[in-house]
Computed example of a mutant assay.
Amino acid sequence: MVRLPLTPAQLAVGQQLGAYLRQARGGRTLVDVAEAAAISPETLRKIETGRMPTPAFVTIAALADVLSVPLDELARICLARVTV
């Protein structure tokens, strides 16, 4: 299966999500948060840098739980419509 290239809007949403998660992580290390969320550090790194703008729901739910942030806030960011 070939994945279509990401649109500028999808890339912008990914960058916004990544920035939010980095801020929510605070002083915790990327490895600590990734392990607590049962995802690989590389997956979290890709999300935080915007290279994975559409992570799976279970990944977002796990990060919301580990970072103690409202899931609906992460959903709002992921569903944002960005004007390009």
Rank of each mutant, 00 (worst) to 15 (best):
A62I: 10
A64S: 15
I47D: 02
R81L: 05
V66Y: 02
G18C: 12
C78Y: 08
G14E: 07
G14T: 14
E73K: 15
S68W: 08
A36H: 05
S68Q: 15
A56K: 15
R45K: 12
E73Y: 08
S68Y: 09
T29D: 05
K46N: 14
G18K: 01
R3K: 13
Q10T: 14
V31I: 06
V33I: 01
V2L: 00
E35Y: 11
P53Y: 04
V84F: 11
E35S: 15
D65C: 02
L30Y: 08
L30P: 02
I60S: 04
A24P: 08
D72K: 10
V31D: 00
D65L: 11
D65F: 12
L17N: 08
Q15Y: 11
V2I: 08
L21Q: 03
D32Q: 09
R76H: 10
I60H: 03
I39E: 09
P8Q: 06
A75C: 08
L44T: 03
E73C: 02
A61Q: 08
Q15L: 13
K46A: 15
V69E: 05
R3C: 03
V33N: 02
L21C: 11
A37G: 02
C78N: 12
G26H: 05
T29P: 12
T29R: 07
P8R: 09
G18T: 06
T49L: 05
I77P: 14
V84R: 14
L79D: 14
P5A: 02
E35P: 01
V69D: 01
E42P: 07
D65A: 10
M52P: 04
A34V: 09
S40Q: 13
T54W: 09
V58R: 14
D32G: 04
L17I: 11
V33T: 05
G14N: 10
G50T: 11
M52Y: 12
P55K: 01
A24I: 00
L6R: 10
A75P: 06
F57C: 02
V84H: 15
T43S: 11
S68M: 11
A12H: 10
Y20P: 01
A37P: 01
A37W: 08
S40Y: 09
F57K: 02
R25V: 04
A37V: 06
A36D: 05
V13G: 12
V82G: 07
R76C: 04
T43W: 03
A38C: 13
V82D: 11
P55N: 00
L11S: 10
R81M: 07
R81Q: 15
G18E: 10
D32S: 12
G18Q: 08
V66D: 03
L74V: 01
L74H: 06
L17V: 01
R51L: 14
Y20F: 14
L4G: 02
T83V: 01
L11E: 09
L17G: 05
A56T: 11
L67R: 03
E42N: 05
G50C: 12
L30V: 04
V58A: 13
K46V: 09
S40D: 15
L63E: 09
T54N: 06
A75S: 05
C78E: 14
